[in-house]
Simulated assay, not measured.
Amino acid sequence: MKNINSHLKAIAQSYDRAIELGRNGINSYNNLPEYLKKDPDYINFQTARENGLDSDSGRIEIKAFLSPAVNAKFVDLGCCLNLMFNGYDQWPSTYYGVDISTETIKLLREFSEKKRLRVGKLHCGSIHETPFEDNYFDIGACIGVLEYYEKAFVREVLIEIHRILKPYSKFVLDIPDNAGKMHHFMNLVETSMGRPDKFDMSIEEFEEILFDFFEIEKKEKIDAVSMVQYFLKRKA
């Protein structure tokens, strides 16, 4: 992928701005440009948000599949604020978060200290190069992240995920369904915030790469946001 460093920087800055706005009580998704509010798919987008379907990080299916346990180490790649808003702070496993946004990691550290949470590490950096040892994690997730990247970088991310997971461990990730009804609108939303969707593969093309590293236990389409969620087992 060309200009990956500048693209990573743009994503980090976008999420930094979102955190800064959030600290001032402003939700970016509540303040979309007028041209998006006039889009025919805006009503569907709002309905999904009202019903809690706009984010798939907090789905009960994730926790049920990963089965977090007291002695398990859980890595949340591209973690955003899952620890705060999607119930991950209630999991018995030890939480490790990785995010490219410095403001996100700063806020998570404040939250974990205030709540006195047992956190393994909160690391600011790209998910294709993490500071963890080989075969370190028991379970993990990467939700709402891969849509920002092209094929070559996505493969690098999958290689890194495979490296830091234990053999046969469980992992959940998602990708955009480029043929989905809401994909175009969701991309417009993200582009308006400075982080356009760069994902350049069909589901079939992505799965060709995925099979090198993981077995698919199941997959589910999240039609409200045109995403496909994969429930995986790491190959040895």
Rank of each mutant, 00 (worst) to 15 (best):
E110M: 02
I62P: 00
I216E: 00
C124M: 08
S169M: 13
N51E: 05
I161L: 05
F74R: 01
H128W: 14
L173I: 05
L81H: 11
V228D: 07
R195C: 13
G140F: 07
N178Q: 13
N178K: 15
I139A: 01
D41T: 08
G194D: 10
E190R: 15
S112W: 12
K170P: 01
E103A: 01
A12H: 10
E205G: 09
L232N: 11
D212I: 02
C79Q: 10
E207T: 08
L122E: 08
I143S: 00
I60K: 06
C80T: 05
R155V: 10
A18M: 07
I209T: 09
H183F: 13
I209R: 06
F185E: 07
L81I: 13
S192F: 01
L81P: 04
F45T: 12
F65W: 07
G58R: 06
P92T: 05
M186T: 01
N51P: 02
I216V: 09
Y95N: 02
L32A: 10
N135W: 06
V157Y: 01
E207Y: 07
A64G: 05
G22L: 04
S192Q: 01
Y35S: 05
L173V: 00
I43D: 10
P68I: 06
L122P: 08
G194C: 10
E215R: 07
Q90P: 00
G58I: 09
N24M: 08
G52E: 13
N178L: 13
S192D: 05
F171V: 10
S101M: 03
G78A: 02
N135R: 14
K37E: 12
A72F: 11
G97F: 00
S55M: 11
S93V: 03
T130R: 04
F213W: 12
R195Q: 13
R17Y: 09
Y29S: 08
V228L: 08
A12S: 15
E190T: 15
